[in-house]
Design a protein around this nucleic acid. Structure first.
Lengths: 209, 209, 209, 209
DNA sequence: CATGAATGAGCGTTCATTCAT
DNA sequence: AATGAATGAACGCTCATTCAT
């Protein structure tokens, strides 16, 4: 039993270190299996330090999600040009997510785990549907723009938004359990399928215009 | 305090009783809150009896999922006429699942909870999308039949199968968090979207044939 | 590390065993030092069993006090004849408590510790002054009877009751830190002192009547 | 977040500052709730500094009590004229303590808490009635003087000293739980009672002398 | 076969104490 | 001398699992 080397880091570094460990442990063992013991071990830090920086386990988990999402948003905003034609934008987005996910599997897995399963002490979900709602509305706005600009046929944008998210989630899940799949090929194929669903009965009209 | 009536049931009945209780408790309290104590209580059975019929809690949970799925498959097989034209068949299947889910919310919730979160002792997921393999292949066979019969354009049947499942799962999840939605209307709309994706660029050819 | 012999006892026996252990540990280590670990060890019982029989540590402590008080009340009621002349009754009571305390030091110490220090989760005392209030009123009634029957002079019965309790408590505390003292002699002397306080200026009147 | 001003104080000042904070925190949160964190915060001092001046938490608590008692003794010595007739002296002392206690409730509460509950690491009490020994002897000397000067009858001075202390302690406790009581009236009444106990069978002799 | 008393590993959390700065 | 980040032992409590009855 070797005594741990005591090192002093800045608050920001330690928090980041612990949050990273949290994501890693949740990805490997699930939210339920992510004991603070395991997290401290993964972070190479003593058990008690977690409570120096986080109020409780819920706080830790919540901050892990928020930090990860902020990071993703920063990246995607830097990557995608929202002024592209809508079909190209969707195709790019799907391919970008596919590529990002293979490089950030743990973050993806863990974030989903926590977002879906974290509960407040009173048993109610810590993250609500309201958070998804915002995403759906952004998506719907995009679809409507596609319709207005003549790319897409008429369809129920809410159902399409839910379906779109479901298809992307399924893709990411499929990647996880089929590590050998060609992810960019899959993403391109999925984009074709979804765009076909949106443009169907339009394409020739479009070309005739 | 009345002593419980010691009743002798066949093994099959006991197992079913306990499995039903498991689903009910998971639906009510979440996988995490589903202690074996609660399950035994719900099944009106002593704590110890569970270990007579199941190896451990993981075994219990796994079997609860498998039993529920077998039940669903039996029902859907009895309900759908596989000889229908493929598009009609898909449309019927989606509407049937939507209808079934509203009447069996608890089973659905619990099954999803367990399938998504159950972990082996080493922390790895007990179920993965790999378990969908059989389902994917059935689905792909259907799509190929649709293509051969001229209903559908060419597309990657595997990606379509994953997407189809993802879209249906997303629908069910959406129902769960939006209890007021008109489920049959949603199901019909989703069927339109998916069929559009499959038939796109074909419909007129088809009609022209 | 030997495995403990597993023995099954009736609920009543186990509860009593654990409550006895609780009193013993609190007497030896104070309420604060009475960890459930120590109590389980003292009771030769596994940690977890405590929560089989008691809701939580507070419940355990509360029940330990209540059980001990019930026992004492049973004994004292069986011992003292309330119809005796009041001075004799007080003298008997003091001597009885002194004798009882030497044979039940642990119960006394522990009961006091818990009664004085136990807090509800919200921080408020678990035992209130209202409990003492009842005792005070019984005592006052006795003093008033003594006054009415001509044994005692006029005095403020409430102050006398508080003083009486304080003097008895001090006696018990003194016994604890001075194990060699002749307890019955002390008790008799204390009775003399207190009775002198109550009868002063009366005795000759009394005899003169 | 302002950095604390690093100030250099003399050792004595620092110690007093921390001891005062200790009393305040114990009074406010109980001995059990008096974490060193809280004490450091109250003293406007860093966590670590406490260990510079005190060996451990027990040492801190013990010294807090001793410092408070020394303070009280200094005050009472300055207040009371020991050459008064003994009965008047006792009456004055009781009234003085009663008055002091209402103005110094926090110190009283905290001191009692610590004195009654502080334990050595092995679980045995850190203070005991044995520590009253010195006080008892002073008291006894006073009683003997009262007897020699003909104020008091013969009685066991040790038992009377213990009883006297117990009665005063009970008074202080009663004040704490009954904030509306007229403390000076109580003190006067108590003095009457105790003096009656001491003078009984003497007063008329005295007056007759 | 069936019960539920009993066990003990493991959890989240607190806090006295240490020590690099 | 002074700070507060870091440590780890101990706590109350839960619950899957065992086993005497």
């Amino acid at each position: 039993m070797t005594t741990r080397q005591r090192q002093r880091l800045s608050e920001a570094e330690r928090r980041a270190q612990i949050l990273r460990a949290t994501i890693a442990v949740v990805a490997a063992h699930g939210l339920d299996g992510a004991s603070t013991n395991l997290i401290a071990e993964q972070a190479r830090v003593s058990k008690g330090l977690i409570w120096h920086y986080f109020a409780d386990k819920n706080d830790l988990m919540k901050q892990a999600v928020l930090a990860a999402l902020a990071e993703i948003q920063r990246k995607i905003a830097a990557e995608l040009d929202l002024s592209m034609p809508v079909p190209d934008l969707l195709r790019s987005a799907i391919r970008w997510v596919a590529a990002w996910s293979t490089a950030n599997r743990a973050v993806l897995t863990a974030t989903n785990q926590i977002a879906r399963n974290l509960r407040l002490p009173d048993g109610t979900p810590a993250f609500s549907l309201a958070d998804y709602e915002e995403l759906y509305q952004l998506q719907e706005a995009l679809f409507r723009r596609g319709q207005e600009e003549g790319w897409f046929r008429e369809f129920d944008t809410r159902v399409m938004a839910v379906t779109y998210q479901g298809a992307v989630d399924a893709m990411l899940g499929y990647f996880e359990s089929h590590p050998d799949v060609d992810t960019d090929r899959y993403a391109t194929t999925l984009a074709d399928i979804l765009l076909a669903a949106m443009m169907s009965g339009r394409s020739f009209t479009q070309s005739g215009a």
